[in-house]
């Protein structure tokens, strides 16, 4: 289970210090922030821009560009359902509909209790075994049916 850590400037500075030496360190730092805190907020942007001698606008531009980065905290879990063509051909529209119904939210939204954020993803590389989905950052599921998707939602809601 993903438990995001509350954002902490000192902790964040530690991450920056550790990764700053890399060639092109901005994405590795932002990836680490997103994975650890669940979002990359204003304070994080300020810290990184100061440390890397970039303008806040430049860092903000990067944060807002990539789908993986979020500027505010979201659900404790993220459920990503593949909506790309290979999964479409294997019935992902019905799965997507079942998931929306079971969670009571549409794609891009978080359940009111803050438990699950539902997102679309365009391809998990499981294109011969779709429809597929990913929970948080690493649990993959394939061969989904609407019924199996509902069971999965129930599990994530716990």
């Amino acid at each position: 289970m993903t438990v995001f850590k509350a954002f902490d400037a000192e902790d964040a500075a530690g991450i920056i210090a550790e990764l700053k030496q890399l060639e092109g360190p901005l994405l590795p730092i932002l990836n680490a922030f997103q994975a650890r805190y669940g979002f990359v907020g204003e304070e994080a942007v300020r810290l990184v821009s100061a440390a890397l001698n970039l303008s806040r606008a430049e860092v903000y531009g990067v944060v807002s560009f990539y789908h993986d980065y979020h500027q505010a905290p979201r659900g404790r879990h993220v459920l990503k359902v593949c909506r790309a063509e290979a999964c479409q051909a294997r019935g992902s529209d019905a799965v997507a509909e079942a998931v929306e119904k079971a969670l009571g939210v549409t794609f891009g939204e978080t359940t009111p209790d803050g438990q699950v954020t539902l997102e679309a993803v365009y391809c998990l590389g499981l294109c011969a075994s779709g429809p597929s989905a990913m929970i948080d950052h690493g649990r993959l599921v394939a061969r989904l049916t609407p019924a199996r998707a509902e069971a999965l939602v129930e599990e994530v809601m716990l």
Partner: peptide, 10 residues
């Protein structure tokens, strides 16, 4: 070699 991870942009 260094492995770098993207951030979700096709």
């Amino acid at each position: 070699v260094e492995v770098r991870v993207g951030a979700g942009a096709y």
